[in-house]
């Protein structure tokens, strides 16, 4: 009997672990949703802030987040996918390629603030793009480059060897095989990686603090050399600057809710695509 008592106790502990985990994460979402929903309205979404950030909406920050995310993807997607195609399809299996793979994996774990330092030194100062959408997009693009490369690589590796060989044996060249067979088959996997990176970029704050973001500008960005307001940085600024903490906290709840909805929706989408792909492969 003792053996079973230990088992029951052990299973109870494990059950408590998942309950506590879901409780903590649920609480965060609950507070943000309940308090954020009070603030969100059409004017909150479509108007610019007024009276030193204590009234009005956050439209410029939403637009800024959109521009930065778009810019980063435009930059990182072709580079990352091309790099993955080279590593999987063209590169010789050698020691050097292994080193390259390992360094890409390692760069995926570098703290985001370090990418911010790189962006500051290279894009803002060295290329003299200043604090701008361009600098911020490039910095965020480099930040997600490793994850796009490894997601694409994984998708490419999952393409069965047999269908490549079938294509080659029909007389297709290696580029034709890649274009017509390998990329279409790997596309859902690549897409998942890209969508997950969109979620990550939209929520990143540290890398854009010194490369793109500004607390308050009256105008909407006019070119890629403008500074922008961005949702995550706006939350930080509302909480740490200004003189009306109560009003600002309410607005910050609204921003947090918008950001949360955006990011959770995007990553749920990616996970659904992946789940489908998996069941398709298993079937």
């Amino acid at each position: 009997m003792k053996k079973d008592n230990i088992q029951n106790l052990g299973f109870l502990v494990l059950f408590l672990c998942i309950v506590i985990t879901l409780f903590f994460l649920g609480t965060i979402i609950f507070f943000v949703v309940v308090r954020g929903a009070k603030v969100i309205s059409l004017s909150f979404l479509f108007e610019a802030p007024r009276r030193a950030m204590t009234e009005g909406g956050v439209a410029p920050a939403i637009i800024g987040t959109f521009y930065l995310t778009l810019g980063a993807i435009i930059f990182a997607l072709p580079l990352g996918v091309a790099c993955a195609i080279y590593l999987c399809e063209y590169s010789p299996k050698s020691f050097v390629v292994n080193i390259i793979r390992m360094s890409i994996n390692n760069l995926a774990g570098v703290p985001s603030v370090v990418f911010g330092l790189f962006g500051l030194a290279v894009f803002v100062k060295f290329f003299n793009f200043g604090v701008s959408i361009l600098s911020g997009s490039l910095t965020l693009g480099i930040l997600v480059l490793p994850s796009i490369i490894s997601a694409s690589q994984e998708a490419l590796l999952a393409v069965p060897r047999s269908i490549r060989e079938a294509s080659l044996s029909l007389g297709a060249s290696s580029w034709q095989t890649i274009k017509k067979i390998v990329i279409p088959t790997a596309l859902p996997g690549i897409l998942t990686g890209v969508i997950l990176s969109i979620g990550r970029i939209a929520g990143e704050t540290a890398p854009i603090m010194f490369t793109a973001a500004t607390f308050y500008i009256k105008k909407y960005p006019s070119s890629i050399f403008s500074e922008v307001m961005v949702l995550p940085y706006h939350i930080y600024a509302l909480m740490t600057e200004g003189t009306h903490p109560d009003k600002q906290t309410a607005i910050a709840y609204g921003c947090a809710l918008i950001l949360l909805i955006l990011v959770l929706f995007v990553s749920a989408l990616a996970i659904v695509i992946r789940q489908r792909q998996r069941s398709y492969h298993h079937a």
Partner: peptide
């Protein structure tokens, strides 16, 4: 896992 860190900081 994808909840942005700024949301955690804010909370």
């Amino acid at each position: 896992a994808s909840i942005p860190s700024i949301v955690f900081g804010f909370f």
